[in-house]
Design a protein around this nucleic acid. Structure first.
Lengths: 112, 112
DNA sequence: TGAATAGTTGAACAATTATTCAACTATGAT
DNA sequence: ATCATAGTTGAATAATTGTTCAACTATTCA
């Protein structure tokens, strides 16, 4: 895996507003999360309302295990949050960034 | 490579505004282009002004070949355009989507 | 024409990643 | 305690991808 830079903060000089290596790395990591159509489908499934894992599986037609693996990535990226209720785990979008970022992409691909 | 769906357009029924498989695939493809910190660096290099390939190489400290490969991907995704002048090829951002999409990501990672 | 500069392209290799499978934890009901 | 439900996790495999290298095209200059 490409690593974050190990420069000291003094060496991470910002020129012309270009982000430092760590920020570039984090941005790329965030985009990687969106860079898979099954994950985007999982996110869309939660657009209207929170869902538990089984409900998500039904919506996106994937195994529980596969969905659970992907939800972990989405949670790590802080794109979804999780609420436990008995044995069920309800997932929901963490904030509006998801919708905005996906919206931007949709706009770009729709322009011819 | 995961393929676009081969359903007929009649079968691609949109429910609840969720995009069809082809649109999801295209969005994921677009995000893949952003999902690499060297490509984001290349895009940032062009934020202020167009640059030829050698100038980009100097800015991002990569070989001509590596940069050229990445520029092809960026061009395919319609994120950059290319203008030839003699033996030099000047690359520039295709439109404002690049800045907007990167801006969204920057916002998300900066929020703790 | 030949040499130099600027960039592109295909093949190969290493690294990353998505899904499957099996084993596991946690909660609730009997 | 036992069983079923709900979900998580680690290992393994197959597929994808970023960089390098070498060979190539295209343009300019002498």
């Amino acid at each position: 895996m490409k690593r974050k830079s190990n420069l000291t903060s003094a060496e991470q000089i910002e020129v012309f507003g270009a982000p430092d290596e760590d920020a570039l790395f984090d941005m790329a990591e965030l985009f990687k999360v969106f860079a898979d159509s099954t994950r985007i489908r999982i996110l869309y499934a939660m657009f209207e309302t929170e869902l538990n894992v089984s409900q998500i599986c039904d919506k996106v037609e994937m195994t529980i295990s596969a969905v659970s693996h992907q939800l972990r990535l989405l949670k790590q990226a802080k794109l979804v949050r999780c609420r436990r209720e008995g044995r069920k785990a309800y997932y929901m979008l963490a904030d509006d960034h998801v919708k905005t970022i996906i919206g931007m992409a949709k706009e770009h691909i729709e322009e011819e």
